[in-house]
């Protein structure tokens, strides 16, 4: 349910379009591409591997999008605080 790991397609077997060599930080394993026959990956694509089968292509765009959302956490709040801070200073300057 469970253990599925991202790996990069290194090469498609010349005699079998359903078989690919996938690399996971230097570890290499043959993976079956039969479940991706509607959207065949090519060398350089990243796929999610489970029990020796590629389950899905990994979308770089969505991954970056997610990272950006996470990196911005707290920044909206911080930006609002800062703006409020400027407002107060102006009023104080006028008053003194």
């Amino acid at each position: 349910m469970c253990l599925a790991i991202p790996g990069k397609i290194v090469e498609i077997a010349p005699d079998n379009p359903n078989s690919a060599l996938v690399d996971v930080v230097g570890m290499r394993r043959r993976v079956d591409l039969g479940l991706l026959e509607d959207d065949r990956p090519v060398p350089g694509d990243w796929v999610l591997i489970h029990v020796g089968f590629a389950m899905s292509k990994i979308s770089e765009v969505d991954a970056l999008d997610q990272m950006r959302t996470l990196e911005m956490l707290g920044e909206c709040e911080a930006a609002v605080q800062e703006v409020r801070g400027y407002g107060l200073e102006e009023i104080e300057d006028k008053a003194s």
Partner: peptide, 18 residues
């Protein structure tokens, strides 16, 4: 869908066919 980078909303048709 939080796991967008991997989960397609419609699922995997080839897998469901098999």
């Amino acid at each position: 869908n939080q796991y967008k980078r991997v989960v397609p909303w419609e699922g995997n048709r080839a897998a469901l066919r098999a």
